[in-house]
């Protein structure tokens, strides 16, 4: 159980992350608001509670790693990195996707310290994370590898190859976090392309599976702590989330997958988040 003050700290940080997301996207420019906000609470718990990482030494060997298989949600990771102090927030927050910026449309490890892999071609992040987890094990490191996956992304075949491999190699240092926000670019996942019994599928693929409310920082923290007790198999945390969470007019609306904000919407979002 988290102490009340700790819980409040993580919730406040999630709010900061959402503010950063909105600020980075700005007015009149396309940005992946929905799928970034659905991950904000999870990312808050990872960076500010769970993960062993050091902004002053981003390549520290013993660090835990976080990869975004759903690379289009890059801005949620940028927000966590800037709030952690990996780079200067004021200098960078208005440079998203600008020519020469280290804040690329999708994460680029060669441009920004703290990014662990280049992702964005969907379905590849779990393979990368699994290979990384296997490599860390070869070195006898205790580091954990966290990888966030979108539910729409689960239609990619490679991801199921990766799930099988993670299980085959008994990668108990790997945690797959599925951001089940129920929406993909063109509508509800349930209408567009049905994934079916996700929990059953992940169990069948050899994972230890937990389902949590992805906006309850306490539940997420507990699931992540619980994962550390699992041996000889990879862990899957299915996080039920709301796309656009925290921005009332965007919640559950597919068009905010990569939508634009009007000046009124931008102001409204920051006003709500300040409250």
């Amino acid at each position: 159980m988290l102490e009340a003050v700790e819980k409040q700290r993580l919730e406040e940080m999630a709010k900061e992350i959402r503010k950063d997301i909105v600020t980075m996207i700005g007015v009149g420019k396309a940005g992946h608001l929905g799928g970034s906000c659905s991950l904000a609470d999870i990312v808050s718990v990872l960076y500010f509670y769970k993960m062993n990482h050091d902004p002053s030494d981003p390549k520290k060997k013993e660090r835990d790693r976080f990869l975004l298989s759903k690379g289009h949600a890059a801005i949620v990771q940028y927000a966590a990195l800037m709030e952690s102090g990996y780079f200067d927030k004021e200098e960078s927050i208005h440079t998203l996707k600008k020519l020469g910026s280290h804040l690329q449309g999708h994460p680029d490890m060669r441009k920004l310290a703290g990014i662990e892999a280049n992702t964005g071609s969907l379905g590849q992040g779990v393979s990368l994370a699994a290979g990384l987890a296997a490599g860390l094990k070869l070195d006898g490191l205790e580091s954990k590898v966290y990888v966030a996956v979108g539910d729409g992304e689960l239609a990619e075949g490679q991801i199921w190859e990766a799930f099988m491999a993670a299980s085959n190699f008994e990668l108990d240092n790997l945690r797959v976090i599925i951001d089940r926000n129920g929406l993909q670019a063109t509508g509800k996942t349930a209408d567009r392309f049905r994934i079916g019994d996700l929990e059953g599928k992940m169990k069948a693929f050899g994972f230890e599976v937990t389902v949590v409310d992805g906006h309850d920082v306490e539940a997420v923290a507990q699931a992540l702590d619980q994962a550390d007790t699992v041996k000889k198999k990879p862990v899957c945390i299915i996080a039920d989330t709301v796309k656009g969470k925290g921005i009332p007019f965007a919640e559950g609306i597919a068009s905010f997958h990569n939508g634009t904000l009007t000046q009124e919407q931008y102001d409204e979002a920051l006003r709500v988040l300040a409250g």
């Binding site: 790693r65 393979s127 990368l128 699994a130 290979g131 296997a134 490599g135 099988m164």
Partner: peptide
């Protein structure tokens, strides 16, 4: 296994670990 796509990205992950 017979899974070249995963093999290739998985290799990328091993490289991330310094292999």
């Amino acid at each position: 296994g017979i899974a070249e796509q995963n093999m290739t990205s998985f290799a990328g992950g091993l490289a991330l670990a310094g292999k």
